[in-house]
Every structure is written in structure tokens, then in C-alpha cells.
Nucleic acid binder design. Structure first.
Lengths: 209, 209
DNA sequence: TATTATACTTACCGGTAGGTAAATAAAACT
DNA sequence: AGTTTTATTTACCTACCGGTAAGTATAATA
């Protein structure tokens, strides 16, 4: 294989990946229904039947992207292994890592949020509820442990879990929805820390790590 | 005017209102781009040029609905007069009323959220940022007052404001996104109360009202 | 009653939506 | 080299999109 041909292959991303990338970008920018197949393929530099060759339909392409995002979110959540330390430290670590992971995949996360909050707009249903549910359960488990081992006061466990998840969720949404977020990772840790300080039992009160 | 004709007029809602109502419903259910003018007018029981007669275009109809929603949100926020009492009581009252008002207008609020989080999908830009901004400022003002007058500890004011607004926002989103919300008004007050308990200065610690 | 204004209809417009058939080019295999 | 498989193209399909022209019906006014 000569060098020119070899270089062409290296410089030319696979058609399939190109379509996926452009579709994610356009679906994120414009929504499923407003993104036409025509502009998708133009953007990827191929012709329309190529899209149908690889994905069967516009919907097939969309589902492939959604499967990718779901897999990514599943992986990310699975990576949130429970580190050692106090419950407080583990919660701060949990939210910190969740936040950083999301910030590294803004387009995918933004699309997931748009689907969660928005109408289906002709796209097939994707269940993103379970990610939020999983996070709430994980936080609830840690909170219960903290209350049980005396690290936290005898607080309403559900209320504390919702307060923590809500705080994190809204600050993360700020990264998604604003060109220049008004609060970031440091602010997140401050707010989570403040809630945890308030929930701490008297003889185990801790400040920010 | 005979009775039969009179009854027909009374039973027949104005065409304009009917179009607005159906459009809000369909835009909320399906999104702007996936809702065709054809199904809008069918749903309202009129023909297509009637929509153009009253609103000029699909976009004109959409903007009219958005203006309605913006006006409603403005009005609701303005009604959140600062009641008397401690800062804690006022914050609980503020969030309670904000929550109840939103719950009374789920379709409008849901559409606003979808627009805030989602891509424009061919619809004209609507600035819903300012509502969230206004709420954050109002809460921030109350927090500052609480810290200043000694009711709250010397906490990071921004962190506390974001914690409170985030908690409220996520629980309110639960009303929007779930058929059967797992947490409601009572849970909101518990969670907000918990954060406020934690932020309270030692000699002014209060429990739920 | 005739005229004007308002409200609504039918039929139509140019353009675009997602998708496909047939043909061709390129790569892989025998 | 010939054949088969894979990848891609050109040209086309039906249905639908937002919007409009011309006409008609109804209500209000002079």
C-alpha cells in the first residue's frame, strides 16, 4: 500500500462515525424533528442512501446515538465506585466525579436532558428516568449510612437526598444551558458542603475538605 | 335572536382561544417542529387559513403563546410579595408559593422548561433565562439578609442560594416530568427546611413551621 | 337595501420531508 | 483475472410542509 493511499485512509474518518458525530451535533443543536436527513448527510459529506445503508432510517441513526449515550452514562455511573472515607467525603467525591464526567460530555448530556424534559417530537421514546433514579438511590444509600452511623443528625433521609441531588442537578444544568455558567465545580462543592455541614451531627461537624 | 342561535354562540368558544389552547397542548406534547399546522387546525375544528387570519403564521401563533406564558410567569413572580416574619419563614413561604403556582400551570411550565433545556427546533428564541435569574436574585437577597441579621451562620451566600434554588427546581421538575411524582409539596418543605436548619445560627435554630 | 368589514372556506402553490430503485464503483475473495 | 460482496451514487417516489389566492358567508353599517 503506497503512502498516498495510506494517508488518505488515515485522514478520512469512517463514514459511519462521521454520520454519528454530525447527527449528535445537529440533534443537539436543532432537535430531532428539525434536523432533516438532507442536512445530516450534507454535513457528513455523503449522500442520503449512505445513511440508509448504514442505519436503515433516520430513526435508526437516532437510536444508535441514544444507545451510545445510555452506554456512556451507564459506564460513568458504574465508575463511581464508592471510595473510602467518611460518608461526607464519599458524597463530595461522588458529586464531584459525576459533575466532571458530565462536563466532559456536554453534547450527550444536553441531548439527554432535552429528551428528559421535552416532548418526544416524533422521536422514539428513550428512558432516561433510570439514570436520575439510580443517582437518587445511590445518594439515598449513602445518606442512610450516614444517619445510621451517627455522622449525620437524625434528619429526614429523603429530604436530604433530594436536597443534595437537586443542588447538584441544577448546578450541572447551569453548565448545559449557559454559555458562561455562573457557578462551577468549586461552587458545587461549596453548596454540597454547606448542606452536609448543616446535616452533620454536632460532634462530627466538618468543614470543606 | 332566537334561542337556538343564542345557544350555539354560547357553546362555541372563540376560535382564537381554541387555537391557542390546542396549540399549547400540542406544542407541549410533541414540540414545535413536530406539530403541523394541519393537525393544529383539525384539533381546533377550523381550516388552515383561519390560523393565518388570526396569527399570521405558525410562528405568530407560537409567539402569542410564549408571550402568554412569559406574562403569566412575570405575574406569578410579582405576586411573591415578601411576607413578614423571619427570613426562614419568608423563604419557606416563597418556595411554597412558587411551587404551588407552577403546579397550577403544568403545561405552560413544562413548555418553558423544554425550551430552556432543549434546542430551538426551528422555533423563534424565547428568553426564559431571566425567570430563573430573577428567582435566584430574590433568594440571594433573602439569604444575604438572613446572614446579615444573624439568623444564619456566616455561610457562603451564593452556595446557600444555589442549594435552595436547586432543591426547589429539581423537585418542581419532578412534577413536570413524572406521571406520579415521588416527592411533592410536603417533601419540598422538608428539604428546604432541612437546608435552612443546617444554615441556622446556633441560637436561632428552628424546626419546620 | 346596498355596501363594507370581518370571518371563514375550497383549492392550490412551491418546496421539502423520509425513503427507495437501479446502477455503478470499489474492495474482497477465489 | 473473474466473480462476489460491499459501499456509494444518481434519479426518483409519495406524502406532507407552511403558506396563499380567490371566493363565499356572515355581521355590521350607512
Amino acid at each position: 500500500m503506497d503512502k498516498v493511499r495510506q494517508q488518505m485512509i488515515q485522514d478520512n474518518p469512517a463514514v459511519r462515525e462521521r454520520l454519528l458525530g454530525e447527527a449528535l451535533r445537529l440533534f443537539t443543536e436543532k432537535g430531532y424533528a428539525s434536523t432533516s436527513v438532507r442536512e445530516l448527510v450534507e454535513s457528513a459529506g455523503v449522500t442520503k442512501p449512505v445513511l440508509y445503508y448504514y442505519f436503515g432510517s433516520k430513526e435508526g441513526l437516532y437510536l444508535e446515538i441514544m444507545n451510545g449515550i445510555s452506554g456512556l452514562l451507564d459506564q460513568r455511573i458504574n465508575e463511581l465506585q464508592q471510595a473510602g472515607g467518611t460518608v461526607r467525603q464519599r458524597l463530595l467525591d461522588f458529586f464531584s466525579r459525576l459533575f466532571v464526567g458530565a462536563r466532559e460530555n456536554i453534547p450527550a448530556v444536553r441531548l439527554a436532558y432535552a429528551i428528559y424534559y421535552g416532548p418526544p417530537q416524533g422521536a422514539p421514546f428513550i428512558d432516561f428516568n433510570r439514570f436520575f433514579d439510580t443517582i437518587l438511590v445511590m445518594v439515598g444509600t449513602l445518606v442512610a449510612e450516614g444517619v445510621q452511623n451517627g455522622e449525620f443528625r437524625q434528619v429526614d433521609r429523603s429530604a436530604l437526598a433530594w436536597a443534595l441531588v437537586g443542588c447538584h442537578s441544577t448546578i450541572m444544568e447551569e453548565q448545559i444551558c449557559r454559555q458562561t455558567p455562573r457557578i462551577g465545580h468549586d461552587g458545587l462543592l461549596s453548596a454540597i458542603g454547606l448542606i452536609l455541614d448543616g446535616a452533620a451531627a454536632k460532634n462530627s461537624a466538618k468543614e470543606l475538605p
